[in-house]
């Protein structure tokens, strides 16, 4: 994969990963931190945006999954020729926040993963059963998290 970013773009990305100031000209404040003009900062930011480099630009809320107390990673074994159809059906459920196809590995044959959120573990089982019903896929296992060992955001191009 070739993604070429200039040093200035990396600096801007590094700043965008922090918290944008809540004031009338936040880009001016950030531009000054890296010694460029507000216009230049907006140019670089527009360029990143136009090349679809920013997945989401905006506020992150606290407790955004409030009401959901339990969550489980559900790993599914789905025939490869059905993965696309099954993945799209599962992704349409509002209780699912993430749905990925992953390569299986020796000794581990699961190839589709969904994160399900519910008010209890029982509800997570019920949601998984509902997904199974909707897709006809029956080979799955729920992996409940017992302990959070680390949770951070990736800092790309940290200075």
């Amino acid at each position: 994969m070739t993604t070429s970013l200039t040093e200035l773009e990396k600096k801007v990305i590094s700043l965008l990963q922090t918290d944008i100031p809540v004031c009338k000209r936040p880009y001016l404040v950030m531009a000054e931190q890296i010694g460029i003009s507000e216009d230049k900062f907006l140019d670089v930011l527009s360029g990143l945006h136009d090349r679809n480099m920013i997945r989401r630009f905006g506020a992150t809320l606290k407790h955004q999954k409030s009401g959901f107390k339990a969550n489980a990673m559900v790993a599914w074994k789905v025939p490869e020729d059905r993965v696309e159809a099954v993945g799209n059906i599962m992704a349409s459920f509002r209780e699912i926040t993430h749905c990925y196809r992953r390569n299986p590995a020796p000794g581990w044959d699961k190839n589709l993963y969904t994160m399900v959120h519910g008010t209890s573990e029982d509800e997570c089982f019920a949601i998984a059963a509902k997904l199974s019903e909707a897709t006809g896929e029956k080979d799955y296992t729920l992996l409940f998290s017992r302990r959070e060992l680390k949770k951070t955001s990736m800092q790309y191009f940290e200075n």
Binding site: M1, T2, T3, L5, I13, L16, Q17, T18, D19, I20, V22, N52, M53, I54, R55, R56, F57, G58, A59, T60, L61, K62, M154, Y156
Partner: peptide, 24 residues
């Protein structure tokens, strides 16, 4: 917005990046 940040309803405002789009 300042009020909602103070009340921690808004955690931050910024860019969210995906590893694949940045070449990671």
């Amino acid at each position: 917005i300042k009020q909602m940040k103070q009340e921690m309803i808004i955690r931050r405002i910024g860019g969210n990046f995906s590893p694949d789009r940045l070449g990671f």
